[in-house]
Design a protein around this nucleic acid. Structure first.
Length: 449
RNA sequence: UCCUGAGUAGCUCAGUUGGUUAGAGCAUCUGACUGUUAAUCAGAGGGUCGUAGGUUCAAGUCCUACCUCAGGAGCCA
């Protein structure tokens, strides 16, 4: 591979001549001196072009370079406080490799819709750049976390013959002569097969939901990581979820400080957010959470405070709505795990607590001021019970024959959870909308670019 | 699927009670400037006011329908 100089390595090359290759991010010119900001993917470097150093001809041609033109700049690395980032290049030579033309994203305000229409170019800008680097760190941390603990990566199919939970609306496509196939909405059931084969596995892949969701927390295509562990109960599941969050968010704090600083404009707010979730999680039974919410809404309603038109008062037995999750987590400084949800509002495969038959051994991890990031449960491991659950939910038994085999042959207690990658990226980066947490979002009204 | 709001220059927006030739900043082009930090300063070009219809002497502004998008709810991760 050819010798390359990158912006991120400049601190070790002060006084040396380097050639940076990248794109013109922005420039300022002042008659006989030009400041060109070169972006190479690893960072941004200010390049100083002085007329009587490079000569009138090269100076004039530099003056014509438009935003996002591809350039190779040669010069001496200088340390200076006047340059953003602390280093700049005293330019001796500039090669224009590809002209830029009228670049649609100018260094001024743009609306989100306009930026999304140019997402393929917007990714070059600072905020998406920082966000995607945080996302990358989270992905690597997720894989490392599981590998360090003896999990193996166990890919589930994306084309599946049936709905996993039988509830969500799925994308469908023709599958040769086999009828319809559906894009996977969860790898969990396959993960359970993996857990019985390998003990500890994690499924990490794209997930598809054809719901007509229209909120800032929903994508129709997103990435989900789903660990599944044999011989683990709900208690172990909650411990794993906490350890997992601490590990991956800890990696962001260790490796992506400068990206967080770009995202919060140097306020340090994002670091504080991350440190919040490194605390021990608050755990509470659904009944306790329900009591707290009852009191919370009673007081709110009594105070006469105006509530949003879509507000619906929580009642015991309900799953939590968006307002409930935000309300509950606002009372604590750390994530909250709610467990033992009413079985009626949860999926068929979740095991019920023998001591509280109307409650599922399920848990959700709720992040402060945000809501659900993780949902998990101990799975039903008894063959007869599982069969009757499938019947109760009106699901086609034949489709679950292979799944039932897992209970026919050496069934054991097991548990797991699912975490939406983009929800985590969104929370860590404090994004306004989840669509900024993935390179090319797929939402109800967007499948382009 | 339900509720709310918005569409005016390439982009972000202003546009009063309906009233002359629809404005600003940025971007683009021309010029000035040797330390700029979204550089600044002077000038120029740039518009079927989402679409269709209606009211009126007169519509960006009022009315009706439609289209598109955004925000919120539900569904969930």
């Amino acid at each position: 591979m050819m010798q390359r100089d990158y912006v991120q390595d400049l601190s070790a090359k002060v006084g040396q001549e380097v050639t940076l290759r990248g794109w013109l991010y922005n420039k300022r010119s002042s008659g006989k001196i030009q400041f060109e900001l070169l972006r190479d993917g690893t960072g941004i470097c200010q390049c100083v072009v002085v007329k009587n150093v490079v000569g009138a001809e090269m100076f004039a041609s530099c003056d014509t370079i438009s935003q996002e033109s591809a350039i190779a700049v040669t010069g001496i690395v200088q340390a200076t406080e006047k340059a953003p980032g602390g280093f700049e290049l005293s330019v001796t030579k500039v090669d224009i490799m590809g002209a830029g033309g009228d670049y649609p994203i100018t260094p001024k305000e743009h609306g989100v819709e306009y930026l999304m229409e140019h997402r393929h170019l917007w990714l070059r800008s600072q905020r998406p750049w920082a966000t995607m680097r945080v996302r990358d760190t989270l992905i690597v941390a997720i894989r490392n976390f599981f590998h360090e603990r003896g999990f193996i990566c166990f890919d589930s199919p994306i084309l599946t013959p049936n709905a996993a939970e039988g509830t969500s609306t799925l994308f469908e496509t023709k599958y040769f002569d086999e009828g319809m196939a559906y894009l996977s909405q969860s790898g969990q059931l396959y993960g359970e097969a993996g857990a019985m084969a390998f003990g500890k596995v994690y499924v990490f892949g794209p997930t598809f939901r054809a719901e007509r969701s229209k909120t800032k927390r929903h994508l129709n295509e997103f990435w989900m990581v789903e660990p599944e562990v044999a011989f683990m109960d709900l208690e172990g599941d909650m411990e794993l979820a906490q350890e997992f969050v601490h590990y991956v968010v800890g990696k962001v704090l260790a490796e992506r400080r400068s990206e967080l600083s770009i995202l919060d404009e140097g306020s340090g707010r994002l670091v504080q957010r991350c440190e919040q979730v490194l605390k021990p999680f608050v755990r509470m039974h659904y009944d306790e959470a329900a009591k707290i919410l009852d009191k919370y809404w009673d007081e709110k309603l009594a105070s006469g405070e105006e509530l949003p038109p879509t507000f619906k008062r929580f009642e015991y037995g309900d799953d939590f709505g968006a307002y409930d999750e935000v309300a509950l987590t606002s009372l604590y400084d750390a994530p909250v795990i709610v467990h033992h949800y009413p079985a009626a509002v949860k999926a068929f495969y979740m095991k019920r607590d023998p001591n509280e038959p109307d409650k599922a051994l399920a848990m959700d991890v709720l992040f402060p001021g945000f809501g659900e990031i993780i949902g998990g449960s101990q799975r039903e491991d008894n063959y007869d019970v599982l069969v009757s659950r499938i019947e109760e939910h009106g699901l086609p038994m034949a489709a679950f024959e292979w799944y039932l085999d897992l209970r026919r042959y050496g069934s054991v207690p097991h548990a797991g959870f699912g975490l939406g990658l983009e929800r985590l990226v969104m929370w860590v980066c404090d994004l306004e909308h989840i669509r900024e947490a993935i390179p090319f979002p797929r939402t109800l009204t967007r499948i382009w670019p």
